[in-house]
Write a protein that binds this DNA or RNA. Structure first.
Lengths: 164, 164
DNA sequence: CGAAATTGTAACTATAATGGTTACAAAATT
DNA sequence: AATTTTGTAACCATTATAGTTACAATTTCG
Protein backbone atom coordinates (compact mmCIF):
# COMPACT_ATOMS: atom_id res chain seq x y z
CA UNK A 1 0.00 0.00 0.00
CA UNK A 2 1.92 2.90 1.34
CA UNK A 3 5.09 3.75 -0.47
CA UNK A 4 5.49 5.47 2.82
CA UNK A 5 8.66 4.80 4.77
CA UNK A 6 8.60 8.07 6.63
CA UNK A 7 7.50 6.43 9.85
CA UNK A 8 10.22 3.79 9.62
CA UNK A 9 12.87 6.42 8.99
CA UNK A 10 11.62 8.62 11.83
CA UNK A 11 11.84 5.73 14.30
CA UNK A 12 15.29 4.95 12.98
CA UNK A 13 16.42 8.54 13.49
CA UNK A 14 14.99 8.75 16.99
CA UNK A 15 16.63 5.45 17.90
CA UNK A 16 20.00 6.73 16.73
CA UNK A 17 19.71 9.79 18.92
CA UNK A 18 18.52 7.77 21.90
CA UNK A 19 21.53 5.53 21.48
CA UNK A 20 23.87 8.49 21.07
CA UNK A 21 22.55 10.17 24.24
CA UNK A 22 23.58 13.76 24.89
CA UNK A 23 26.03 13.81 22.00
CA UNK A 24 24.38 15.67 19.09
CA UNK A 25 24.34 13.84 15.76
CA UNK A 26 24.95 15.61 12.47
CA UNK A 27 22.47 15.15 9.67
CA UNK A 28 25.21 13.59 7.56
CA UNK A 29 25.92 10.93 10.20
CA UNK A 30 22.24 10.11 10.44
CA UNK A 31 21.88 10.07 6.66
CA UNK A 32 24.77 7.62 6.50
CA UNK A 33 23.00 5.20 8.81
CA UNK A 34 19.63 5.60 7.10
CA UNK A 35 21.26 5.43 3.69
CA UNK A 36 19.74 8.57 2.29
CA UNK A 37 20.51 12.24 1.72
CA UNK A 38 21.23 14.63 4.63
CA UNK A 39 18.55 17.04 3.46
CA UNK A 40 15.92 14.35 3.68
CA UNK A 41 16.99 13.85 7.29
CA UNK A 42 16.95 17.56 8.06
CA UNK A 43 13.45 17.88 6.68
CA UNK A 44 12.29 15.06 8.90
CA UNK A 45 14.09 16.55 11.89
CA UNK A 46 12.09 19.74 11.36
CA UNK A 47 8.88 17.75 11.81
CA UNK A 48 10.25 16.08 14.92
CA UNK A 49 11.53 19.40 16.29
CA UNK A 50 8.19 21.07 15.72
CA UNK A 51 6.61 18.33 17.81
CA UNK A 52 9.16 18.99 20.54
CA UNK A 53 10.86 15.61 20.20
CA UNK A 54 14.33 16.81 19.16
CA UNK A 55 16.43 19.96 19.35
CA UNK A 56 18.99 21.01 16.77
CA UNK A 57 21.79 23.52 16.72
CA UNK A 58 23.67 25.13 13.87
CA UNK A 59 27.40 25.65 13.79
CA UNK A 60 30.52 23.58 13.69
CA UNK A 61 29.67 21.64 16.84
CA UNK A 62 26.00 21.48 15.96
CA UNK A 63 23.67 18.59 15.34
CA UNK A 64 20.47 17.16 16.79
CA UNK A 65 19.61 15.26 19.96
CA UNK A 66 16.49 14.10 21.74
CA UNK A 67 14.51 16.73 23.60
CA UNK A 68 12.61 14.24 25.72
CA UNK A 69 13.18 11.17 27.85
CA UNK A 70 13.30 8.18 25.47
CA UNK A 71 11.67 6.05 28.15
CA UNK A 72 8.63 8.32 28.05
CA UNK A 73 8.55 9.00 24.32
CA UNK A 74 6.37 6.59 22.37
CA UNK A 75 6.07 5.62 18.74
CA UNK A 76 2.72 7.37 18.82
CA UNK A 77 4.50 10.64 19.56
CA UNK A 78 6.65 10.06 16.48
CA UNK A 79 3.69 9.01 14.35
CA UNK A 80 1.76 12.13 15.30
CA UNK A 81 4.80 14.34 14.69
CA UNK A 82 4.70 13.24 11.06
CA UNK A 83 1.10 14.37 10.71
CA UNK A 84 0.15 11.50 8.46
CA UNK A 85 -3.51 12.02 9.17
CA UNK A 86 -4.69 8.43 9.36
CA UNK A 87 -4.09 5.04 7.87
CA UNK A 88 -6.71 5.11 5.10
CA UNK A 89 -8.32 7.93 3.13
CA UNK A 90 -11.86 8.56 2.07
CA UNK A 91 -12.86 9.10 -1.57
CA UNK A 92 -10.86 11.62 -3.57
CA UNK A 93 -14.00 12.91 -5.21
CA UNK A 94 -17.19 12.98 -3.15
CA UNK A 95 -19.62 10.18 -4.13
CA UNK A 96 -22.95 10.79 -5.80
CA UNK A 97 -25.61 12.55 -3.73
CA UNK A 98 -28.27 10.83 -5.83
CA UNK A 99 -27.44 7.36 -4.53
CA UNK A 100 -28.49 6.17 -1.07
CA UNK A 101 -25.16 4.42 -0.65
CA UNK A 102 -23.08 7.26 -2.03
CA UNK A 103 -24.75 9.92 0.05
CA UNK A 104 -23.92 8.23 3.35
CA UNK A 105 -20.91 6.01 2.74
CA UNK A 106 -18.44 8.68 3.80
CA UNK A 107 -20.06 9.05 7.19
CA UNK A 108 -20.11 5.31 7.79
CA UNK A 109 -16.57 4.86 6.51
CA UNK A 110 -15.41 7.75 8.63
CA UNK A 111 -16.50 5.85 11.72
CA UNK A 112 -14.69 2.73 10.55
CA UNK A 113 -11.48 4.58 9.78
CA UNK A 114 -11.64 6.23 13.17
CA UNK A 115 -11.85 2.81 14.76
CA UNK A 116 -8.86 1.61 12.76
CA UNK A 117 -6.82 4.66 13.65
CA UNK A 118 -7.59 4.20 17.33
CA UNK A 119 -6.39 0.61 17.19
CA UNK A 120 -3.15 1.67 15.52
CA UNK A 121 -2.58 4.42 18.05
CA UNK A 122 -3.21 2.03 20.91
CA UNK A 123 -0.38 -0.19 19.69
CA UNK A 124 2.05 2.69 19.07
CA UNK A 125 1.28 4.27 22.42
CA UNK A 126 2.64 1.23 24.23
CA UNK A 127 6.07 1.14 22.59
CA UNK A 128 8.71 3.64 23.69
CA UNK A 129 11.92 4.63 21.95
CA UNK A 130 13.70 2.94 24.81
CA UNK A 131 11.86 -0.29 24.02
CA UNK A 132 13.07 -0.09 20.44
CA UNK A 133 16.65 0.56 21.52
CA UNK A 134 16.50 -2.33 23.98
CA UNK A 135 15.34 -4.62 21.22
CA UNK A 136 18.22 -3.43 19.05
CA UNK A 137 20.88 -3.94 21.70
CA UNK A 138 21.14 -7.72 21.81
CA UNK A 139 22.63 -7.49 18.35
CA UNK A 140 25.71 -5.34 19.03
CA UNK A 141 27.22 -2.63 21.23
CA UNK A 142 28.10 0.90 20.36
CA UNK A 143 31.25 2.95 20.29
CA UNK A 144 30.24 6.51 19.64
CA UNK A 145 32.59 9.34 18.81
CA UNK A 146 35.40 7.14 17.59
CA UNK A 147 36.70 8.56 14.38
CA UNK A 148 35.99 5.47 12.34
CA UNK A 149 35.41 6.59 8.82
CA UNK A 150 33.44 5.00 6.07
CA UNK A 151 34.00 5.70 2.42
CA UNK A 152 31.27 7.26 0.36
CA UNK A 153 30.57 7.11 -3.34
CA UNK A 154 31.54 10.72 -3.82
CA UNK A 155 34.86 10.22 -2.10
CA UNK A 156 33.87 12.09 1.06
CA UNK A 157 33.73 10.41 4.45
CA UNK A 158 31.74 10.87 7.64
CA UNK A 159 31.81 9.75 11.21
CA UNK A 160 29.21 7.10 11.87
CA UNK A 161 28.17 4.89 14.71
CA UNK A 162 30.18 1.68 14.46
CA UNK A 163 29.69 -1.69 16.02
CA UNK A 164 32.44 -2.56 18.50
CA UNK B 1 -0.54 9.71 4.79
CA UNK B 2 -2.04 7.47 2.19
CA UNK B 3 -3.40 9.16 -0.87
CA UNK B 4 -4.98 5.78 -0.97
CA UNK B 5 -8.74 5.67 -1.31
CA UNK B 6 -8.82 2.20 -2.81
CA UNK B 7 -10.13 0.65 0.39
CA UNK B 8 -12.88 3.25 0.73
CA UNK B 9 -13.94 2.72 -2.87
CA UNK B 10 -13.87 -1.06 -2.52
CA UNK B 11 -16.15 -0.94 0.53
CA UNK B 12 -18.41 1.45 -1.37
CA UNK B 13 -18.62 -0.94 -4.33
CA UNK B 14 -19.30 -3.97 -2.18
CA UNK B 15 -21.99 -2.05 -0.27
CA UNK B 16 -23.71 -1.13 -3.52
CA UNK B 17 -23.84 -4.75 -4.60
CA UNK B 18 -25.02 -5.91 -1.19
CA UNK B 19 -27.79 -3.38 -1.40
CA UNK B 20 -28.66 -4.36 -4.94
CA UNK B 21 -28.87 -8.06 -4.05
CA UNK B 22 -29.07 -10.53 -6.92
CA UNK B 23 -29.45 -7.84 -9.53
CA UNK B 24 -26.06 -7.40 -11.26
CA UNK B 25 -24.73 -3.84 -11.39
CA UNK B 26 -22.97 -2.45 -14.43
CA UNK B 27 -19.61 -0.79 -14.01
CA UNK B 28 -21.09 2.42 -15.30
CA UNK B 29 -23.79 2.43 -12.63
CA UNK B 30 -21.21 1.81 -9.94
CA UNK B 31 -18.91 4.47 -11.37
CA UNK B 32 -21.78 6.92 -11.25
CA UNK B 33 -22.26 6.35 -7.52
CA UNK B 34 -18.55 6.41 -6.76
CA UNK B 35 -18.07 9.42 -9.02
CA UNK B 36 -15.26 7.99 -11.08
CA UNK B 37 -14.54 6.27 -14.37
CA UNK B 38 -16.06 2.83 -15.19
CA UNK B 39 -12.62 1.40 -16.01
CA UNK B 40 -11.37 2.27 -12.55
CA UNK B 41 -14.31 0.29 -11.17
CA UNK B 42 -13.69 -2.67 -13.48
CA UNK B 43 -10.07 -2.82 -12.42
CA UNK B 44 -11.11 -2.92 -8.81
CA UNK B 45 -13.75 -5.54 -9.53
CA UNK B 46 -11.00 -7.73 -10.97
CA UNK B 47 -9.22 -7.65 -7.61
CA UNK B 48 -12.44 -8.44 -5.80
CA UNK B 49 -13.29 -11.22 -8.24
CA UNK B 50 -9.87 -12.77 -7.89
CA UNK B 51 -10.47 -12.94 -4.14
CA UNK B 52 -13.82 -14.64 -4.80
CA UNK B 53 -15.88 -11.76 -3.43
CA UNK B 54 -17.77 -10.86 -6.62
CA UNK B 55 -18.70 -12.46 -9.93
CA UNK B 56 -19.09 -10.61 -13.20
CA UNK B 57 -20.62 -11.41 -16.53
CA UNK B 58 -20.18 -9.89 -19.96
CA UNK B 59 -22.98 -9.17 -22.39
CA UNK B 60 -26.00 -6.98 -22.59
CA UNK B 61 -27.50 -8.27 -19.36
CA UNK B 62 -24.13 -8.45 -17.68
CA UNK B 63 -22.71 -6.79 -14.64
CA UNK B 64 -21.33 -7.76 -11.25
CA UNK B 65 -22.83 -9.05 -8.01
CA UNK B 66 -21.62 -10.41 -4.70
CA UNK B 67 -20.32 -13.97 -4.71
CA UNK B 68 -20.63 -14.38 -0.94
CA UNK B 69 -23.06 -13.79 1.88
CA UNK B 70 -22.68 -10.13 2.89
CA UNK B 71 -23.40 -11.12 6.48
CA UNK B 72 -20.31 -13.31 6.43
CA UNK B 73 -18.04 -11.09 4.36
CA UNK B 74 -15.92 -8.74 6.40
CA UNK B 75 -13.99 -5.59 5.67
CA UNK B 76 -10.87 -7.66 6.27
CA UNK B 77 -11.81 -9.82 3.27
CA UNK B 78 -12.02 -6.65 1.18
CA UNK B 79 -8.80 -5.25 2.59
CA UNK B 80 -6.93 -8.45 1.81
CA UNK B 81 -8.43 -8.62 -1.68
CA UNK B 82 -6.68 -5.34 -2.46
CA UNK B 83 -3.30 -6.78 -1.47
CA UNK B 84 -2.13 -3.56 0.09
CA UNK B 85 0.59 -5.36 2.02
CA UNK B 86 0.44 -3.53 5.31
CA UNK B 87 -0.18 -0.12 6.76
CA UNK B 88 3.43 1.11 6.91
CA UNK B 89 6.53 0.29 4.89
CA UNK B 90 10.10 -0.29 5.87
CA UNK B 91 13.00 1.68 4.42
CA UNK B 92 13.15 2.03 0.63
CA UNK B 93 16.89 1.54 0.67
CA UNK B 94 18.35 -0.85 3.25
CA UNK B 95 20.07 1.01 6.12
CA UNK B 96 23.81 0.91 6.74
CA UNK B 97 25.28 -2.43 7.84
CA UNK B 98 28.08 -0.54 9.57
CA UNK B 99 25.81 0.97 12.19
CA UNK B 100 24.44 -1.00 15.13
CA UNK B 101 21.08 0.70 14.78
CA UNK B 102 20.93 0.44 11.01
CA UNK B 103 21.85 -3.21 10.92
CA UNK B 104 18.93 -4.26 13.14
CA UNK B 105 16.30 -1.59 12.85
CA UNK B 106 14.46 -3.39 10.06
CA UNK B 107 14.02 -6.50 12.17
CA UNK B 108 12.73 -4.56 15.14
CA UNK B 109 10.48 -2.39 13.00
CA UNK B 110 9.17 -5.45 11.24
CA UNK B 111 7.88 -6.75 14.55
CA UNK B 112 6.23 -3.43 15.31
CA UNK B 113 4.57 -3.19 11.92
CA UNK B 114 3.32 -6.73 12.31
CA UNK B 115 1.72 -5.74 15.58
CA UNK B 116 0.09 -2.72 13.95
CA UNK B 117 -1.21 -4.76 11.05
CA UNK B 118 -2.70 -7.32 13.42
CA UNK B 119 -4.53 -4.59 15.29
CA UNK B 120 -5.95 -3.21 12.04
CA UNK B 121 -7.03 -6.65 10.89
CA UNK B 122 -8.71 -7.32 14.21
CA UNK B 123 -10.91 -4.27 13.72
CA UNK B 124 -11.73 -5.01 10.08
CA UNK B 125 -12.50 -8.65 10.85
CA UNK B 126 -15.38 -7.63 13.09
CA UNK B 127 -17.24 -5.47 10.59
CA UNK B 128 -19.28 -7.16 7.85
CA UNK B 129 -20.64 -5.69 4.64
CA UNK B 130 -24.05 -6.18 6.15
CA UNK B 131 -23.03 -4.04 9.11
CA UNK B 132 -22.01 -1.27 6.74
CA UNK B 133 -25.28 -1.52 4.81
CA UNK B 134 -27.25 -1.45 8.05
CA UNK B 135 -25.45 1.70 9.11
CA UNK B 136 -26.29 3.26 5.75
CA UNK B 137 -29.96 2.40 5.83
CA UNK B 138 -31.26 4.82 8.46
CA UNK B 139 -30.53 7.56 5.98
CA UNK B 140 -32.76 6.52 3.08
CA UNK B 141 -34.40 3.60 1.24
CA UNK B 142 -33.68 2.22 -2.16
CA UNK B 143 -35.58 1.80 -5.38
CA UNK B 144 -33.46 -0.27 -7.68
CA UNK B 145 -34.11 -0.77 -11.37
CA UNK B 146 -36.26 2.28 -11.82
CA UNK B 147 -35.19 4.02 -14.96
CA UNK B 148 -34.38 7.26 -13.25
CA UNK B 149 -31.70 8.93 -15.25
CA UNK B 150 -29.08 11.40 -14.21
CA UNK B 151 -27.35 13.75 -16.57
CA UNK B 152 -23.61 13.48 -17.05
CA UNK B 153 -21.10 16.06 -18.13
CA UNK B 154 -20.69 14.37 -21.52
CA UNK B 155 -24.42 14.37 -22.16
CA UNK B 156 -24.84 10.64 -21.66
CA UNK B 157 -26.98 9.20 -18.89
CA UNK B 158 -27.04 6.03 -16.82
CA UNK B 159 -29.33 4.16 -14.51
CA UNK B 160 -28.29 4.67 -10.92
CA UNK B 161 -29.60 3.72 -7.53
CA UNK B 162 -31.92 6.50 -6.40
CA UNK B 163 -33.28 7.41 -3.02
CA UNK B 164 -37.04 6.95 -2.81
C1' DC C 1 37.40 39.38 13.35
C1' DG C 2 37.44 35.78 9.85
C1' DA C 3 37.39 30.86 8.47
C1' DA C 4 35.09 26.58 8.80
C1' DA C 5 31.22 23.74 9.78
C1' DT C 6 26.38 22.84 10.13
C1' DT C 7 21.50 23.72 10.07
C1' DG C 8 17.42 25.77 7.78
C1' DT C 9 15.34 26.25 3.54
C1' DA C 10 14.21 26.93 -1.26
C1' DA C 11 13.98 25.13 -5.81
C1' DC C 12 14.16 21.71 -8.74
C1' DT C 13 14.09 16.78 -10.58
C1' DA C 14 13.07 11.72 -10.01
C1' DT C 15 10.28 7.82 -8.66
C1' DA C 16 6.25 5.25 -7.66
C1' DA C 17 1.36 4.50 -6.66
C1' DT C 18 -2.99 5.69 -7.97
C1' DG C 19 -6.51 7.66 -10.78
C1' DG C 20 -8.45 8.90 -15.25
C1' DT C 21 -9.16 8.30 -20.30
C1' DT C 22 -9.52 6.11 -24.82
C1' DA C 23 -9.78 2.18 -27.44
C1' DC C 24 -10.99 -2.35 -28.68
C1' DA C 25 -11.32 -7.53 -28.56
C1' DA C 26 -14.09 -11.17 -26.29
C1' DA C 27 -18.31 -12.72 -24.58
C1' DA C 28 -23.29 -12.82 -23.94
C1' DT C 29 -28.11 -11.49 -25.15
C1' DT C 30 -31.61 -10.39 -28.34
C1' DA D 1 -25.92 -10.31 -37.14
C1' DA D 2 -26.44 -6.26 -33.96
C1' DT D 3 -26.04 -4.58 -29.38
C1' DT D 4 -24.27 -4.41 -24.85
C1' DT D 5 -20.90 -5.04 -21.38
C1' DT D 6 -16.76 -6.87 -19.40
C1' DG D 7 -11.70 -7.60 -19.68
C1' DT D 8 -7.64 -5.41 -20.78
C1' DA D 9 -4.00 -2.72 -22.78
C1' DA D 10 -1.88 1.62 -23.49
C1' DC D 11 -1.47 5.88 -22.39
C1' DC D 12 -1.46 10.57 -19.56
C1' DA D 13 -2.42 13.11 -15.04
C1' DT D 14 -1.97 13.70 -10.18
C1' DT D 15 0.04 13.25 -5.76
C1' DA D 16 3.30 11.99 -2.13
C1' DT D 17 7.76 11.09 -1.22
C1' DA D 18 12.67 10.89 -2.07
C1' DG D 19 16.77 12.81 -3.83
C1' DT D 20 19.84 16.70 -5.29
C1' DT D 21 22.04 21.26 -5.53
C1' DA D 22 22.67 25.59 -3.72
C1' DC D 23 23.10 29.08 -0.37
C1' DA D 24 22.06 32.24 3.62
C1' DA D 25 22.11 32.19 8.71
C1' DT D 26 24.18 30.54 12.77
C1' DT D 27 27.75 28.86 15.72
C1' DT D 28 32.48 27.59 17.10
C1' DC D 29 37.20 28.32 17.09
C1' DG D 30 41.71 29.91 15.61
Amino acid sequence: MSTNSRFAVAVHVMSLMAWSGEEPLKSEQVAESVNTNPVVIRRMLLDLAQAGLVVSQTGSLGGSRLATDPAKTTLLDIYQALECGGVFSLHRQPPSRDCPVGVNIETVLGDVLQEVDSAVEQVLKNITIDDVVQRLKPCGTLTNGKTSRVGKSNGKAAKVLRTA
